[in-house]
Each structure stands twice: as structure tokens, then as C-alpha cells.
Amino acid sequence: MRLRVGIVGLGTQWESRHLPALRALADRFEIRGICEQVAHRAQRVAAQLGVAAVDGFRALAARDDIDALLCLADQWYGATPILAACEHGKAVYSAISLPLDAGEGQALRSRVEAAGIAFMAELPRRFAPATVRLKELIATTLGPPRMLFCHRRIPLSPVSPSTPPRDPDTESRDLVELVDWCRYVVGTEPSSVVAVRHAEAPGAALDDYRMMSLDFTAEGPPGNGVLAQISCGYYMPRGWEEAVGFRPPPALQVVCADGIAFADLPASLVWFDTAGRHQESLESERPVGEHMLLQFHRRVTSLVRHMSGLDDTLAAMRIVQGAAESIASGHRVRL
């Protein structure tokens, strides 16, 4: 079954991830319309693909020849295209930022659930070949995780009209992605979080570094279960290419019961056990964009209702909010 889809938003991943994936999966997806806040860009891409440039996401969601909306980039109207899809019974693939406010996030979940639509949030770290292989190794060779170290160094971009400004919300969303990745690898929920920050300047709202430790201890005092340390730094100017690339930490280091693994996305994995070093290059695997869209297609066409990723994203948001409480109070926060 080919899904007839409408595109809402053409973001920075359109050329590199979403368009190649849709072309590779042309037997499963057919683009019928494009809505984008920059009208001339919508018209240009629509002309290239031979589809309609639609003026407004509500008009796109209301079309009878649309089965699903692919919300691929943040636009000025936020998450309202998801609500429009709910009104018209259209499935949603969402690569956009969901509301960070807990009440708004829960209200969105209730609307999706009441509408009975298939919903999938784009969580690329989960579907990266290195993560998929890591989960296999944990189940078969490395054993259960004991400690995780997840680091992300984000080069600062010069301020420009094409670059969205960095603000506390974008910093929190960066952390949400990393928190979800660690939750997925561990396979359980953390019970507490403690966090610290370093401001760009005294009294500034923006950080140049933020770190949190998630404790997955199920019972008893903290420190007796899996521990995940997550950090996100914004202290490297993009123009310092040599410094940015100097000895970068692995994106994820996982210490397991029977070995240790180092993962760099999308497709690099090095792991060690008693037999020594094992290096795997997974470039031949299906690209992550195709893999995620295939999962979405299965969810829409199956008879089982799915809200994949929405609950996971909201859970990660609650953890990041707990980290903010920890920073403000200087204490560990129970989740």
C-alpha cells in the first residue's frame, strides 16, 4: 500500500535525509502536496517533484488525497499541524519539536489518543545502525549495561537569518534527544536525576555546558543501578574547525557486564570483550531516514494502533525538566 503524504516544513534534513528516503521508498510513499512557511521554497520543491504547493497546513490536512502528514521541520506555528491532522483523521510522522511544557505535552497526547491516529515521533538515534547493532550486542554478548557516558559537543553557529537562534528551549530539546537515547539503550526508566550547568556569562539564561546524571536504581539508595552521564557543550565556535575535531569523545560509551562499547552515529561501533577489540562499520545498512519511514509505514498500515515515540519523547521531557529542578535547587530530584 502506498501512503499519500503531505509534507509540512522543509528543514535542514530535507535534502540529506528525508528526500532521499522518500525517493528510495517510492513504492510505499507518494508525495501529494507541500506546505512550507517560506512560500518560494515550497513552490520550488513542489515544482521539482511535480506536486502541489499548498497554502497552509490546515488545507493540506483536509485534502481527501492525503493519508498522512510528514511534519519535517519546525515552523512558526509549532505543533498545530498535529492537531489539524487529528481533526481530519490523518496519520502523523513528526520530526518537529513538541511542547516542552508538561501540560501542553499531555494535552497533545490526549488529542492524538482521542483521534485514534497513528503517530510516530522521529527519534533518529534509536534507529541508527550503530544503536541497532549495540542493542543486539547487549542482548547476546556484552550483557546488561552498567554505566553510560553520552557526550555531545555542538559547535556554535554564527547568527544569521538562516540559523534559528539558540535559546533555553533549543538547549533542552538537545538534551531530550540524548536522554531518550540513554533510556532506550538501558531499557528501563531512571529513578532520579542530578544536574549542573555553566552559564555563558554570569547571570545569562543560556548555557555553554550542561550535564546530568541519571540513576536507574529501582530500589534502595541511588548508586546501586545503571548510571548514565549525559553532557551537552556549546563552547566551541564553528570557525575553530581544528579544535572542534580534536579528540572528540565518542557519542556514546557503554560499560556492560561483559564488555564495553563505543558508538558514533550513524554507523560506527567499536567494542571490547575478553577476546579483544572488535570494530564494525555499518555503512552498508539501510540509512536511518529510510529505516524510520519504513517503521512509520508499518505502523500506519498495520491493524494495531501505534503512538510510537510520543510517550518516549514526553518521558524524556519530564526527565529534562527534573534536571532543571535539580540545577535550581542544587539537589537530586526523584522522578
Rank of each mutant, 00 (worst) to 15 (best):
30 E>Y: 10
239 G>R: 09
324 A>T: 14
166 R>N: 06
151 H>W: 11
24 A>E: 10
61 A>Q: 04
11 G>Q: 07
251 A>P: 06
278 H>R: 04
77 Y>P: 08
161 P>Y: 02
113 E>Y: 00
69 L>G: 05
117 I>R: 05
5 V>W: 02
112 V>M: 04
29 F>M: 03
229 Q>R: 15
131 T>A: 14
248 P>V: 07
173 R>Y: 14
279 Q>F: 13
26 A>L: 06
102 A>E: 11
33 G>Q: 02
34 I>C: 07
122 E>D: 14
317 M>K: 05
290 E>H: 02
300 V>R: 02
297 H>C: 07
24 A>P: 05
110 S>H: 10
153 R>V: 11
249 P>K: 07
151 H>I: 13
131 T>L: 09
55 D>H: 04
121 A>L: 07
28 R>V: 00
52 A>C: 03
199 A>G: 01
277 R>H: 10
321 Q>L: 15
134 L>Y: 08
232 C>Y: 09
260 I>Y: 07
11 G>K: 06
219 E>T: 14
8 V>P: 02
259 G>R: 03
74 D>E: 12
171 E>D: 09
185 V>D: 03
315 A>V: 15
243 A>H: 13
194 V>Q: 15
268 S>R: 15
228 A>I: 06
304 V>Q: 14
84 A>D: 13
252 L>M: 09
140 T>V: 07
79 A>K: 01
167 D>A: 13
153 R>Q: 09
195 A>P: 06
104 E>K: 10
43 Q>D: 11
48 Q>I: 00
322 G>L: 09
52 A>G: 03
255 V>D: 11
249 P>A: 09
211 M>Q: 15
4 R>F: 04
117 I>E: 00
236 M>C: 10
160 S>P: 02
125 R>G: 06
307 M>C: 06
56 G>Q: 02
250 P>H: 14
236 M>S: 09
102 A>T: 09
140 T>K: 06
317 M>T: 14
327 I>H: 03
292 M>Y: 00
70 L>Q: 03
60 L>R: 01
226 V>P: 08
107 A>T: 11
11 G>A: 08
304 V>E: 15
